[in-house]
């Protein structure tokens, strides 16, 4: 994805930007990272990149698209780091903690077992496939907007979406029947 450029025009202070978008950025990053506890670092990276890009922001839908693009890039970076960083072990521990926490919950509630299965299936997707699933199903974006956001053609987005759905159908087939 090409380097992003901040939209200009109507001014918005950085404090206002954080106040308005922090929660949305956190939620999107959390979903893109596969519901993992690395969201604080990524959120800070996103707003740091935004702060660096320009001191002025535009308070409309374009700004959110711009922040989404930064968030996607930062999540990709985070996932690459996770693979090679020395503290990959730490990430594993965090993930294990997350899974065990969910597992302990699903002893008391069958719904959480389903959550765990869905999380595991989505986490097994490749990051680019996970992105389209999150954007399409959870952020409820249409394919055209996704193609603009991801810098890919519409057919490419459709292919990714189809592939991701196919990969989720296998592990989630039982749950989908229910």
């Amino acid at each position: 994805m090409p380097a992003t450029k901040a939209p200009e025009a109507q001014t918005l202070s950085f404090d206002q930007l954080v106040a308005i978008y922090e929660e949305r950025v956190r939620r999107l990053a959390y979903r893109l990272l596969g519901w993992r506890d690395e969201v604080d670092d990524v959120t800070q990276d996103v707003f740091f990149a935004a702060f660096r890009a320009t001191p002025r922001f535009r308070g409309d839908a374009q700004l959110w698209t711009w922040l989404m693009r930064i968030t996607i890039n930062q999540c990709r970076t985070q996932q690459r780091k996770r693979l090679v960083r020395w503290n990959g072990l730490k990430a594993l521990i965090v993930r294990q903690r997350h899974l065990s926490a969910t597992a302990s919950l699903d002893q008391t509630d069958a719904r959480d077992e389903m959550t765990l299965q869905v999380h595991n299936a989505v986490n097994k997707l490749r990051p680019k496939d996970r992105e389209v699933i999150v954007l399409y199903y959870l952020e409820e974006m249409d394919v055209k907007s996704m193609s603009e956001l991801l810098g890919a053609s519409i057919s490419n987005v459709n292919v990714r979406l189809h592939r991701a759905r196919e990969r989720l159908r296998g592990p989630l087939s039982d749950l989908m029947k229910d």
């Binding site: 404090d15 954080v18 922090e22 389903m114 199903y137 959870l138």
Partner: peptide, 21 residues
């Protein structure tokens, strides 16, 4: 699939007390 994903979509952990700005 959408229903499953929306069901499994949990909220992120609360942000720390330190100010992001």
């Amino acid at each position: 699939l959408k229903q499953l994903l929306r069901h499994a979509d949990t909220a992120p952990p609360l942000a720390g007390e330190s100010n992001l700005v």
